[in-house]
Structure formats: C-alpha cells, structure tokens
C-alpha cells in the first residue's frame, strides 16, 4: 500500500484517482458561480465538450446559470491574431429556444444583442444539423440548444463537433425523457427552480458564501435554482447546489420587497404600494 501511494505521488498529476475531481487547468470557462466552480473539474464549464442540462420544463430557469459563462465567451480576449479577430466576431447561437430571448436582460448579463444568433428549427434532424453546423463555425464560441428528442449517438456526434472547435456547448433536454438514459456528456446537471425548504442545513452551504445571492432569512419563500450535479469527472455529488434564480438586480428588488412586506405585514393593496417605491428606488 505504501508502495502504491509512493508511486502515485511520484507520477503526480498524470494519474486521476476516480474518487477525486479531475484536475484540468485549461479548456474551461468559469461558470460565474463560486459554489458550482468548486464542484466542477477544472473550476468551470468544460470547453469543447458537451454539457447537458435536464429541465423539468423547457422554460425552466437556466439563463442565470449560463449567462456569466456566455458573457465570458463573448468578450474573452484571446491570444493570436486570428483568434483576436475571432473574438471580435464571437457569437452565441441559441437553437430552438422555447421563447424569444429578451435582449435587454441578456445585454445586462453581458451578452450584447449583436452577438446573438437565433436558429429556429422545428424538425429534430434540422435542429441537430443546425447545432452541428454551429459548432463547426470558428466564430461561434457558445451554443445553447434545446434538443428535446435527441438520441445518444447524436449527442456523441455533437460532442465530437464541439471538440473540433472548442466551443462551449449546452444541450437542454427534458428531464422526463432523458434522466434515466445514459449520456456521453462530460458534465450533466439537473436544473430546476424550487423554493428551498426552510431551516435545513443545506441552505447554509451556499449561505456561507458572502455573495449578494447568499440565501438569508429574508429569502425564505423565494425561489432558488436547485442544481444537481448528476455526472462529472469525479465522485458523484449527493447534495444539491443552490444558486440564484435571477439576476443580481432582480434578486435585490425581490429581496427588498420581501423584507418590506414582512416588516409592514399589511394587506395586499398597500403591499403593492410599498413595493412600487422600492422598485423605483432600485
């Protein structure tokens, strides 16, 4: 046993013990959420690999989770003449979204409107084909695709396409059909907005981070984004991560409104009136 441990220490980082997080330093982009970064190998979303998100409904919350990384990919200053010009024209491609993305909110999140391409395709083969074409484009640095009826082999094909250009690829699938099926994704998450149950120790896990989104007493009854890491290169994560369900500004308004409502404890019409002042102030 001592021989094994000495061997491991001599080999160093070239061996990955499967009960630890894989230590990769390149080819990731930070998620923008510290608790999630800490649990992902390399400290961020892997580039050139498939990241699969399972949603209860197609419209379930996901933009707050993805926006910081997308913004990073759009503004990323890269080295090399060709890549610098590519960064100037970096695009985020959204394929088959359930609704129309509202640009002011995305721009506030760091993805300017001019960098967004919306591909609408109805038939599953066309969606797949469009996703693959987007991944093969050198100027597309991130792809967010809703592929409700994608198959295992097709996902593998997408992963290979992403590996060629090193794009950030998110595939969003319905949880009902995909949760029990194996997937070639490098990272697999389940994302859903939930109201966390009060007075549970897991709230404190995120609450110990002192960011603006730390769940506090005032946030009870307000939704949060529950992220279950189903698959990663490392040991499975049993506990869920609680992340902000909306942008910082919205969260501030919602929390402030909540606090004042709690303070006044007045019937509905006056609550509305009190909130109006807070919204204007925010």
């Amino acid at each position: 046993m001592r021989a094994l441990s000495s061997l491991l220490s001599s080999i160093g980082a070239s061996v990955w013990p499967a009960d630890e997080l894989l230590c990769v330093t390149d080819w990731v982009v930070a998620t923008g959420h510290a608790p999630l970064d800490a649990e992902l190998p390399g400290g961020g979303w892997p580039l050139g690999a498939l990241v699969e998100l399972l949603q209860p409904t197609p419209t379930a919350a996901m933009w707050p989770l993805l926006l910081p990384a997308l913004a990073e990919r759009v503004r990323e200053p890269m080295s090399g003449a060709a890549q610098r010009s590519a960064a100037k024209s970096a695009r985020v491609v959204v394929i088959n979204p359930p609704h129309e993305p509202y640009l002011p909110a995305l721009a506030a999140g760091g993805v300017p409107a001019s960098r967004l391409l919306w591909l609408a395709a109805d038939a599953p083969p066309a969606q797949l084909w469009a996703t693959e074409q987007a991944l093969r484009c050198q100027d597309v640095t991130a792809v967010v695709a809703w592929l409700p009826r994608v198959q295992m082999g097709e996902l593998r094909r997408l992963q290979q396409a992403a590996a060629q250009t090193g794009a950030l690829l998110f595939v969003l699938r319905p949880e009902s059909s995909a949760a029990q099926v194996a997937s070639p994704a490098r990272v697999r998450l389940r994302v859903a907005a939930e109201v966390p149950a009060p007075h549970r120790p897991r709230l404190q896990l995120v609450g110990e981070g002192d960011g603006p989104h730390a769940l506090s007493e005032a946030a009870h009854g307000l939704p949060a984004l529950r992220v279950d890491l189903l698959k990663r290169r490392g040991p499975p994560l049993q506990r869920p991560l609680w992340l902000p369900v909306c942008s910082t500004a919205v969260w501030a308004v919602v929390q402030a409104a909540r606090a004042s409502a709690r303070a006044s404890e007045t019937p509905t019409p006056e609550v509305r009136h009190a909130l109006a002042r807070i919204a204007v102030a925010a």
């Binding site: 609704h99 509202y102 002011p104 721009a107 999140g109 300017p112 409107a113 942008s247 919205v250 308004v253």
Partner: peptide, 22 residues
C-alpha cells in the same frame, strides 16, 4: 451592429426578464 447598445428606456435592463412572450 456592434455599436448598438441597449437604449435606456426607464426600466433598468437588469430588471427585465430573460424570456419574452411575443
């Protein structure tokens, strides 16, 4: 174009939702 910035329209953009129902 590249220079087009979201125009200020009163409501702070950060408070707007991410999906719009047409």
């Amino acid at each position: 174009g590249e220079g087009a910035t979201p125009l200020h329209t009163g409501l702070p953009d950060a408070l707007s939702p991410t999906w719009l129902l047409r």
